[in-house]
Design a protein around this nucleic acid. Structure first.
Length: 422
RNA sequence: GUGGCUGUAGCUCAAUGGCAGAGCACUUGACUGUGGAUCAAGGGGUUGUGGGUUCAAGCCCCAUCAGCCACCCCA
């Protein structure tokens, strides 16, 4: 094998086929985002490490982000997430912006992790946030955006669900069974991991974490209570709004959804396969302190992020990946011989001026080779202009779909092609 | 960061420690102005890389790199 330089580990190549999927996803995201009145924005790919040190959790950034010194010695990070950048953007122009803001973005992110199914070191992520609204309606809207999106791309509510919880509800419930502030983080972590280990092991882990037997029993009871959300006025209202929007069936209450990120302050949610296979497709929630933490005035916010890889895994699993045959052009102009090359380009321009995408075979070659090429790349119509046509001032159009061919004058060619392509 | 599996032609993969192969793809021809199908011929390899064992290594051993998968973690 020839020695080709290897790509950087975990970085992704997007051949036209993969690019077509990425753009399809981008399009679906844009459509849903804009239909809810959100505006697109983008931030820099590189940020100073300090931006993340503030809130994402220092360990997370140090161990799982690409960090390197620039020529001036500053520590630069390949952005591992967008929310801190968003908070910075808002904090910088807080007085000029019309709050609340509805913003969305789709772009590349990087994490220095070991690649595996549904995860690489480079990934594309959709971020969508409602900044400056602390209401229950704001939370409900984001959950609805997420449900509508899943529906739009062809996933049913039997296949996937959005699982919602509220950290404040969990706070009060934990307090009620005697788990106080300093134990809270431990308890959250415990709840988060319940499905990830065998029951007996989990209980052992719980006791080792400092819970007593009685608390463990109450905690289990609490986590098993699928109606617990009714104790939260906030969640009751969220479900009422989702009902009104028409996506209630996609959304379920799940007391075990906590989310790992420290900056969430209230509602938290994630979408996943109902079969509970694989990791979450997307995750988000309310973060009321982040803008303030990067130097702005306090602005309650809510939002979520979705990566491009996990959603692709799910779409494939349920067989709803779109058919994305990317055709380079509708028409190809063949080049009969060296002498007709110039005319072939002129012919291409004529067709192109009719608003039809067209490519010109780039060299004189045997007609069979050119037709074979056209067939392989999915061209529907091939124009042939050899000596016979040239003398008669005509152009032959060969239809590769059914094998027929017809000749036209140059003047009638455009209309004829449009008709055949319709 | 931990563990398992895998690296052989462009792709998918064969080859008891004993001549490196097949299918698909590609090129050419059958068909000098007509694609897909068929047939024939042809090109293509430092078996991921570096060491070691052996008369002999694609195969065994060590290291290393990469890919996949599962942990860890998840923004």
């Amino acid at each position: 094998m020839k020695t080709t330089i290897q790509p950087v580990k975990g970085m992704r190549d997007f051949y036209p086929e993969q690019m077509a999927f990425r753009n399809w996803l981008y399009g679906a995201i844009r459509k849903v985002s804009e239909s809810f009145g959100y505006q697109e924005y983008e931030g820099p790919i590189l940020e100073k490490i300090d931006l993340y040190a503030a809130k994402s959790g220092e360990e997370l950034v140090k161990e799982q982000a690409f960090v390197f010194p620039d020529r001036g010695g500053d520590l630069i990070t390949l952005r591992p997430e967008l929310t801190p950048t968003l908070a910075r953007l808002v904090a910088q122009r807080q007085n000029e912006l019309a709050i609340p803001l509805r913003w969305w973005s789709f772009g590349p992110f990087f994490r220095y992790e070991r690649p595996q199914k549904g995860r690489a070191r480079e990934f594309f992520q959709w971020n969508i946030d409602l900044i400056g609204a602390g209401s229950t309606g704001a939370d409900a809207e984001l959950i609805a955006v997420c449900a509508v999106f899943l529906q739009k791309i062809g996933l049913t509510h039997e296949q996937v669900g959005v699982f919602v919880n509220d950290r404040r509800l969990m706070d009060s419930q934990l307090a009620a069974i005697g788990i106080q502030r300093e134990m809270k983080q431990t308890a959250f972590r415990l709840i988060d991991r319940r499905d990830k280990m065998p029951a007996a092991e989990w209980e052992e882990y719980a006791l080792a974490s400092g819970l007593n037997g009685e608390q463990l029993g109450l905690l289990k009871e609490m986590l098993g209570d699928r109606a617990l959300w009714q104790k939260s006025e906030h969640l009751v209202q969220i479900f009422a709004i989702l009902e009104a929007i028409g996506v209630r069936e996609y959304v379920s209450f799940d007391p075990q959804v906590i989310r790992g990120l420290d900056y969430y302050t209230g509602t938290v949610f994630e979408a996943r396969d109902r079969a509970k296979e694989g990791r979450a497709i997307l995750g988000g929630g309310r973060y009321d302190n982040l803008v303030e933490d990067v130097g702005g005035a306090p602005l309650p916010s809510t939002g979520f992020a979705m990566g491009d890889m996990m959603i692709a895994v799910i779409l494939e699993k349920y067989g709803v990946l779109p058919d994305l045959v990317s055709l380079p052009a509708e028409v190809m102009v063949s080049v009969f011989d060296e002498e007709s090359m110039v005319d072939a380009f002129a012919l291409s321009t004529l067709v192109r001026s009719e608003g039809i995408s067209v490519l010109c075979y780039p060299e004189a070659a045997k007609l069979s080779k050119q037709l074979k090429y056209a067939d392989r790349i999915g061209i529907r119509l091939v124009l042939i202009c050899g000596p016979d046509e040239k003398t008669a001032g005509m152009v032959t159009v060969k239809n590769l779909t059914n094998g027929t061919q017809q000749t036209f004058t140059r003047g009638s060619l455009g209309a004829a092609l449009r008709k055949m392509l319709a």
